[in-house]
Structure formats: C-alpha cells, structure tokens
Design a binder for these strands. Sequence first.
DNA 1: CTGAAAGCGCTAACAT
DNA 2: ATGTTAGCGCTTTCAG
Lengths: 337, 337
Amino acid sequence: MESHREAVTSLDVAREAGVSQSAVSRAFTPGASIAADKRERIIAAAEKLGYRPNPLARSLMRGRSNIVGVGVGDLANPFFVQTLQLLSDALDGAGLRLMLFPARGGSRPEPTIHEILHYRLDALVMLSVSPSSALTEQCRRAQVPVIHYNRTTTAHDASSVVGDNGTGARAIAAHLLAGGHHRIAFMAGTPETSTNAAREAGFAGYLAEHGAPAPIRECGHYAVDASMAAMRRLLLRTERPDAVFCANDTMALAAISVARHEFGLDVGREISIAGYDDVPMAAWPAFSLTSFSQPASRMVAETLRLILALRSDPDDHQTVIAEGTLVVRGSTRPVGR
Amino acid sequence: MESHREAVTSLDVAREAGVSQSAVSRAFTPGASIAADKRERIIAAAEKLGYRPNPLARSLMRGRSNIVGVGVGDLANPFFVQTLQLLSDALDGAGLRLMLFPARGGSRPEPTIHEILHYRLDALVMLSVSPSSALTEQCRRAQVPVIHYNRTTTAHDASSVVGDNGTGARAIAAHLLAGGHHRIAFMAGTPETSTNAAREAGFAGYLAEHGAPAPIRECGHYAVDASMAAMRRLLLRTERPDAVFCANDTMALAAISVARHEFGLDVGREISIAGYDDVPMAAWPAFSLTSFSQPASRMVAETLRLILALRSDPDDHQTVIAEGTLVVRGSTRPVGR
DNA sequence: CTGAAAGCGCTAACAT
DNA sequence: ATGTTAGCGCTTTCAG
C-alpha cells in the first residue's frame, strides 16, 4: 500500500543511502554539519529517487514558509505590472515563492488575506494598495512584516519603498514653467493615496514658490475612464489650460488620447501633457509622453533587500526612497524656445 | 515558554471550548459530522482567540494544498495581465491560493518550478507558455495536473483552454477581403506557438479558398520592438500591403504606431490594420483597433471549472475552446462602401 | 457523534 | 559528525 501520493520521502532516501533520516535532512540544509562524502552519497540517492524536501513539512517545522505574499489592486496600470514581473523574477532568484492575492483598494476587508497570513509568510508586500488598519493589526499578531510598495504609511511597524514623489512632481512643475505655460492644471489620482498627496503637494508647492497661480484641479482617480472624463472637463473650460500634469502615466495617456482625438489638439504644441512613472508605453511614438521615471527595478531590488533583512530581524523596518529622473519627450512644449 | 510563534492552535481552542482537539478540526471541516451546537461553541471560542486552522499543517495532512501554480512568461501583453487579474479573482473566490512563478518561454528548464511542484498543487496553469517535456513529466510524477491556457498541447494527459483561433483568423480575413483589400499581409507572432500556427493557418486558408494571393509574411514575435521592425519592413516594400493582420493586439498597436507616426499613413483609410485579443487599449480612440475578441472572463471561468474538476479527478482532462467575436473599429476600412 | 491515538514529512534539540 | 527522540498543527481512522 502506497503512502499518500506515492511521494518520495526523506526516509526513502535514508534507506537508499544507508543513513539516518535526519542525515538526509541535514544534507539538504545549507549550513548543517555533515561530512562532505556522506552528503554526496545522500544527494546521489535523492537524485536517483527523484526526491525533494517537502516544502510544506519544512515550513511547518521551521515556522517560516519562504513565501512572500503580494497584494495587488488594479493591474490596469502598467507600472504595477512591470513591478510584479520584476518582483516575481527577483523573488524567484532568491528562492522565495510568491503568493498573489487580490487586495481591493481599502474597501471592505478581504477575508482571503486573513487566511493567507497564516502561511507564516516571510513578508507581505502591498503593491500600491493600503491595507486596512484591521489587517495591519492582524499582520502584527501573525508576526508577518508588511512592506508598502509605492505607498508611505504612518505606521511605525512597517517598511515602505517609494519613489521621491515630491522631487519628481517639482521637476515636472519646473519643466512646465520653463516651457512658458501659464494656465497649468493638475489631474489628481485617487485623493486618499499618499502618492497622489505627495505629487500634488510638490507640484502645487513649486508653482506657488515661483509665483504661478494654483493649478486647476480635476480628478482622474488613476483610472482610464475617469481620466478621460476629467480631461474633457478641463478642455471644455472657458479658460482652457495650456498644460496638464497627470499624477500618473495611465491618466496621461488617456488625456493625450482625448486631447488629440476628441479635441483635435496638437499635443506638445497647443497643449502640454506630462505624466508620472515612465511606463514602457510612454516611449511609444504614438504618445511620446514626458514623464518622471520611477526606477522600478531599483525599487524592486530594495524591496527584496527589505524582505531578506526582515527575515533575520522582523522588526528591522525601514523606509526606502528611490530617486527618479525626468524624461522629456514630445508631449510637452520644448523649453529652449 | 511560548510555542513557536505564539500562534493559536486547535488545542488552545479545544481547551477554551472544553472539547477535544479533533472536535475543533471537525468544526472547521465542512462535511464533518459534529453536533450543531458544539460546532457553534467551538467557532465562538475560535473567534475569541483569533484562531484559524494552519493551512500548512492542513495541506500536509490532506496531501493537497489548495494552491494553484500559475506560470507566466512576458507580462508585456495586456491580454495576459487581464487574464491574470481575472484568474486571481476567480481563484480567490473559490478559496484557492495562487502561487505565481516566472516560466521563461520554453528555453532552459527553470529550477524553481520543480520545487513549486512539491507543494502538492491542485493544478498548474501555464499562461501562454509551453512547459518543456521534462517539466511535463515531472508534473505527471508529482501528480500535478497541468492546464494550458491559450495554448493547445499534443499531450493527452493535460487540459487546455483556448480561443477558437482558426475561426477568429478567418473572420478577420473575411472582413479584410470584404473591405476590398488586395495586398494583404500577415504579421506572425512566435512561430512555434500553437496560437500563431492556428491563426496563420486560418487566415491563409480563408484567403486561399477565396482566390486571394497568399499573404505577405513578416514576423513580430509577439513583441513590441520586433513588431515595429517588422512593420517597417512591410511598409518599405515596393508593393506596400494595403492591409495587415497582426497575430495579436500588442503587435497591432505597435504596427499602428509605426504606420501613423513614422510613415504618416492614415490608418483605416490608406491602410487597414487588425489585431487579435481585443485588449482594453484596442478600444482607445488613439488606436480604435479592429480585433477579434477573446472572451477572457469566460476562458478564466472555464479554467476554474477545470481546476475544480481535476481536484476530484486528476485524470479528468479536457480541452475547452471558447468562441470569440469580431470587433470592427476604425483601424480597418469599412466594408459597406 | 465524539475522544484517543496515530501519523503527514520534516527539523531541531539531545545525546552520543 | 551522526543517530535517536520529540514534536510542528493538523486530519483521520478507530473505538465507543
């Protein structure tokens, strides 16, 4: 009678290699003390039998799963997709598993995530979604460190990785002012988010400091449809803005689309539009979007670093701020003339 | 001295409720035989203590993890992203966890996935990536059923969910012929993939059956840069094509971009461009891409159905073909005139 | 229906 | 360095 699922266990390997079962365990544990020749014999036997340590049992014993939970909201934003891809590669390279779950943006608390926590996750990364305070509390109780990605947090027992939103937004403001614009608008993303707050504050702050009027404001909620609607409202004003800074690229691409195809405007001459993130599509000739580039790969690398640090010390929380660069393209009026 | 991670165990709940530990287990097992009032008392005690069954231990005993592995290749294609989002929601709704891993397209066998298999996965879904034959064999040995998404397979011990590529491609061909086109081109995706093969065969087949010459062929490898290059080659021909069918939308959007912005062509009048998948961006005014719509949500629903079916019978393999619809937009010359 | 007992496959003391 | 012995937290016979 076969065992559970006819799986090869460490005991099988032990018998095959003529050693104890714990020796097999040690052979598969990096730092363990075991004679080199013995280890090799065991590895050989394991290979022959097609053995692999059962990660479930291992996690149960170790009290740690080697799994990182990743909560995502709307994947419509290419910046998150890019991040997810990079993160999936990075974790894979570090021998960690990635458990993905939908984390609806702050609305009602998801039941699922509570269950996920009990996997003894090495860390929980929230990709541009803010966990409810209840969830945060649950994480603390379950001893799962939380890393906020692209969001800051007031909580002191959480890490976060963000771009330098204030500086980025100021760079955009400077660029638009230098381009000779006077009626400048700001298209906000979701108002409650820290990214939007920081970008808006930096943008408006720079304008104010340089004697420009406060920007006209519309809200696109980081969504395509809402941004199109917001852009229409902006362009139907009697005092039509001559420049629009959208709080992310998704909104900016939608805005360009509306300006060009619905209002027949020559983007980059009659109106300037700038975004934030520098997603791959921003570089397409169809858009040629001026944007502030968030260094996704560096941000992900930092996230991995935090995860590894938190593995050794779950209380070693940090906030990482990654610098970006302004990428000037054709969607904004050139400065030099 | 605290236990491992000061976690609440079923034993704690048992003591609190004054029952045996196995009773607690039964209270959390849907079909188990336990008195209703006793169950309620247990649930109450569990709630009070903040208890949840440890999924690791549960999986270890049950020999099944409630985890579905999902292998993804390049997430640059919005169709896959959309699918991933839908799948993540669907699995979540069914109480299943989603373990994401990067599965490089068919190149060398990834070491990671071999490890993932040992989680006693309920299923392994390959999103538009073909597993190596070695991997397929491993899955068989580990008793993990494989589901190919957007790919057919010759293997008889695997399921697959695909769109009706032949029919879709023929619909595009019919639409282009009806539009009065004569020099028709086909931009291929990755040649080795079953999707490309089916779309190309359907397209060329329809043209041949209707007396049209075989399509001019270039290859865009389902990638943006390669597609832009391919489009340039097509448009630099002395006999410039007046219609191009791209094997997916990613390539078609890139093609539009090149035609319009590099060659100054009026897409939809001077040249027709059609794609496949009907990704969200296809509907943007900036592109207005005629495309054959793959019913992503239905395909994902079918995938979930297969997963659940395979849970009860791991050998119950099926092939599901989902029908789509032609979505005519402005990027192709209208038929009626 | 319910409790006691035997593991799932592994790791981590504990003694050699 | 190695084998033996306890468990990790749970499910599942097995008696009753």
